[in-house]
Design a binder for these strands. Sequence first.
DNA 1: GTGCAGAAATTGGTTGGACCATTGGACCAC
DNA 2: GTGGTCCAATGGTCCAACCAATTTCTGCAC
Lengths: 244, 244
Amino acid sequence: MDQNSLPPIQTTARDDAVLKALVGFVRAEALQPGERLPTERILAERLKVSRNTVREALTRWEGLGLVERRQGSGTYLKAAVSPDMLHMPLTLAGGNDFTSLMQTLEIRRALEAEAAALCAERASQADIAEIARKLDVMEQAFRTRDGMSSEEDWEFHQAVYRVSGNPLFEQIIAAMHELFHRFWEHPLGVRDFGHASFPYHRTIYERIAARDPQGARAEALKLIATVEDDLKRGAAKLKLSSQT
Amino acid sequence: MDQNSLPPIQTTARDDAVLKALVGFVRAEALQPGERLPTERILAERLKVSRNTVREALTRWEGLGLVERRQGSGTYLKAAVSPDMLHMPLTLAGGNDFTSLMQTLEIRRALEAEAAALCAERASQADIAEIARKLDVMEQAFRTRDGMSSEEDWEFHQAVYRVSGNPLFEQIIAAMHELFHRFWEHPLGVRDFGHASFPYHRTIYERIAARDPQGARAEALKLIATVEDDLKRGAAKLKLSSQT
DNA sequence: GTGCAGAAATTGGTTGGACCATTGGACCAC
DNA sequence: GTGGTCCAATGGTCCAACCAATTTCTGCAC
């Protein structure tokens, strides 16, 4: 017998129903991220459920990053919602040690290479100009501040992800970026972290502008490789200093 | 001044505290996935908080897939927890249409290529033998059932992810696989879906066994390309049939 | 009128207690 | 054994109140 031919039935799902109603409300009112949604008390009254149930539902959304609650102020939409949303909560074991950073970098290498390749395939002239702009800003910041242009660097990469035409790239990387933010800032005490990766930003851009997916992929791989080297150098230095 | 040197204080964070206490409990009791954790009432009493607060905390964990609640039975651990867990909830807009599947495939292509390359770098002799075993099972299933060896196919890929040495690959892909499970089974009505990708499983294995990261990466890219072609064919067929 | 301190209303966070719905085991009749 | 009934345990929901943070309003001094 096919296991799937007799799925478990669904009897009650109050808070799920609340969330579905809320999705409908957001769409009906065309709420944008940042806007405030009705208070818990009003929702409870309108939906004819207890405030407690509303709170459980909102807690779910908060956990998924869809909504932000501010005591005394209200509950605010943080991201666009749609009826056919798919949730993919990932919980990664491991803290901010060398291994975890390395593993994160491997994921980033995978996504970065693919995003650069897709970007080279799909970028319009306007997209290419936009990326060029971000690159200029980044290089400017790099020269004036001599490195540590992490904010502008991030914007350049974000632009590449966006132009790739696949929002999943940006979402996944953004989630990781937020998690490891502190460490991208001061990773293991290596002062010139990311210095070596600088020239590859331009080469990636050039391959994208030349509509060369394979080339863009290769340059992206090189960029991440330099970051990995930096990381290894930092780890080695740490190990050395801890032995003294 | 460094923004991070003065983090906002935590006046109230009851449910977070509950979760932290729960992490401690799980570790202290060495609870394994599948085991039951204390009832909400007991937790509330022990932690000196209201049962409602406990429920909100558990709702968070449930949303993250860490825990499963069964009414009348109890709350069960669904995944390993650790103090330095990192949560990365992703919500993907768009349903199970062609575009979404295509975007998912692009992510998979990125990760698959990288995982195969890492696998080729790091696999031990035992690992290679394990992958060979999965490959044999898959090819066997393919021959006897003439295609549609999705379960065994999945196990082969999982083995590659595992041997890559980076658990993040397996986690991310597993989450996506679960989401799109129904569609990997019967994607857009294409009966021989995945047929064309069959030979590349062996070529990937061969490149891994030969310790050839670049080759493994290239073969993995080819494999996903065939799946993408299948998907496009299916979409075209659908479009055609909807026009009649 | 303007500015500002303090009161008041609003809103999410927490509490305690109650009841409902489901589960799973114990027990019993057949 | 099979099938039923009962019962205690457990998660799900509800209510009413209060706490804490925030926002808004009010009224006074100038």
